[in-house]
């Protein structure tokens, strides 16, 4: 009995620290995260997740003032081009205004879907950008990373293909 109670106390104490999310995790996150995320197209319409159901989603969080984010874009664009026949959607979300997104789009002309996020970065436990979340075809998050990557390398294209299929 004595050991049981001490054990419970110890477990209770350590549970106070909560579970800190790794920024380079690979374990799956529940599918409701993506479906409850509110993203707006440039025209102000909400992205309907039903329309991308069954597809993997590459979701990159960025901002116009974030140099590394902007630096990463050509690599994302190239990766999207390389995977255009695959079952994956590329979205790049920012908390900034639609006007800023439009202005950025006109200036740089990337062939990417730049969208505005209504769901805050904080509520997604994102503490820095660029952060990329990848959801598999069932809508489960299977990848999260905070840092820019050269997404179009052979190694990363292979990684993306593997992640799409990851259960």
């Amino acid at each position: 009995m004595k050991y049981l109670i001490v054990f419970i106390a110890v477990i209770t104490f350590f549970s106070c620290n909560g579970s800190r999310q790794s920024v380079e995790e690979t374990q799956s996150v529940d599918a409701s995260e993506l479906s409850s995320m509110q993203l707006l197209n440039i025209d102000g319409s909400l992205i309907n997740w039903q329309e991308v159901k069954g597809k993997a989603v590459f979701l990159n969080f960025w901002a116009t003032w974030c140099g590394p984010c902007v630096k990463e874009m050509p690599y994302i664009e190239a990766a999207a081009r390389a995977l255009k026949e695959e079952n994956i959607v590329f979205l790049l979300a920012t908390e900034e205004s639609t006007e800023k997104i439009k202005s950025f789009e006109q200036k740089f002309g990337y062939q990417l879907d730049l969208v505005r996020q209504k769901t805050s970065l904080a509520s997604l436990d994102i503490t820095a950008i660029p952060t990329t979340y990848i959801y598999n075809t069932k809508g489960k998050r299977v990848f999260a990373e905070t840092s820019a990557r050269k997404w179009d390398t052979d190694e990363n294209i292979k990684l993306l293909k593997e992640l799409m299929k990851k259960p």
Partner: peptide
């Protein structure tokens, strides 16, 4: 006496 550690554990969460 035995329940004391448990209470400490719970209170430390608050």
């Amino acid at each position: 006496v035995l329940i004391f550690p448990l209470l400490i554990g719970v209170v430390s969460c608050v």
